[in-house]
Computed example of a mutant assay.
Amino acid sequence: MHERAEDTRRAVLQAAAHLFFERGYAATSIADISERSARTSGAIYFHYAGKEKLARAVVEAHFATWPVLIARNETAGAPALENLVRLSFAVARAFRDDVLVRAGARLWAERRSIDVEMPPPFVDWIATVERLLTGARAEGTLAAAADPGRDAATLVSAFFGVHTVSDALDERRLIEDRLTALWHLVLPGLQAVPAPGALLARVRDDSASLTR
């Protein structure tokens, strides 16, 4: 019984994520989610109590993606800056390919039209980037002029700015190329010994090997 309930919750969440991403919150109804998930409206209300709570569940699933992704992409023994760049590409691919991530981002952008409190964005990302920059400082690989506490928020802002522009111009199809261009611009100001091309080549080679 418990397994069947979990199957229903997952099916409804996935269906809602697809529809919220494709149509937006206002244009998606419980009837649409019921049809897409092949679950009754009664089952949806039983598990999620309404469209607002379902939207919040999608956003929460979006945020729950990140700790797992961070752990998976911080390679033990690798330099902190390399881990930071590797993580940025993993996040970029999630925003391009993972419907829960994309739906969560759209719903958060539409939060003012949804009558439920949403989790705050960016705060955990800023803390993660600051931690990695602080690690680079301890390793001696961070440029003297760089400041982890100051620069973490700027890097997160630039990263999500690239995502916004890429989404608008090409639906993130070229996000990895655009992110590479951002790192070519930024890394010379972060690396104690600037060598952005070599670092990016290692990270992109690692990423390619994961997809083989």
Rank of each mutant, 00 (worst) to 15 (best):
Y48S: 05
G50W: 06
E52I: 04
L54M: 03
L54I: 03
A55Y: 13
A55T: 06
A55N: 11
R56F: 04
R56K: 09
A57C: 13
V58M: 01
V58K: 03
V58T: 02
V59L: 11
E60R: 14
H62L: 07
F63P: 00
A64R: 07
A64T: 01
T65A: 11
T65K: 15
T65Y: 15
W66G: 01
P67V: 02
V68H: 08
V68E: 12
L69F: 06
I70K: 02
I70Q: 04
A71N: 07
R72G: 02
R72I: 01
R72N: 02
R72M: 03
N73D: 11
E74Y: 05
E74C: 08
T75G: 04
T75Y: 00
T75V: 13
T75D: 03
T75M: 04
A76H: 13
A76D: 15
G77A: 08
A78M: 11
A78S: 15
A78F: 07
P79V: 03
A80R: 09
L81T: 05
E82W: 12
L84G: 07
L84I: 09
V85C: 02
R86F: 09
L87N: 06
L87Q: 09
F89T: 03
V91K: 08
R93P: 01
A94Q: 15
A94K: 15
A94S: 14
F95D: 06
R96M: 02
R96L: 03
D97S: 07
D97L: 07
L100I: 09
V101I: 15
V101K: 14
V101H: 14
G104M: 09
G104F: 13
A105S: 09
A105P: 00
R106Q: 02
R106D: 01
R106G: 01
W108F: 14
A109K: 14
A109T: 11
A109Y: 11
E110W: 10
R111C: 06
R112G: 04
R112M: 10
R112W: 07
I114Y: 10
I114G: 02
D115H: 14
D115G: 06
V116L: 13
V116N: 04
V116E: 08
P119Y: 12
P120D: 13
F122M: 13
V123P: 00
V123H: 05
V123R: 13
D124V: 10
W125L: 01
W125H: 05
A127P: 00
A127S: 08
A127W: 13
T128V: 04
T128M: 03
V129C: 02
V129N: 02
E130T: 04
R131T: 14
R131E: 12
L132H: 12
L132T: 12
L132D: 06
L133F: 05
L133M: 01
L133S: 03
T134D: 00
G135K: 12
A136T: 08
R137K: 07
R137A: 10
A138Q: 15
E139T: 13
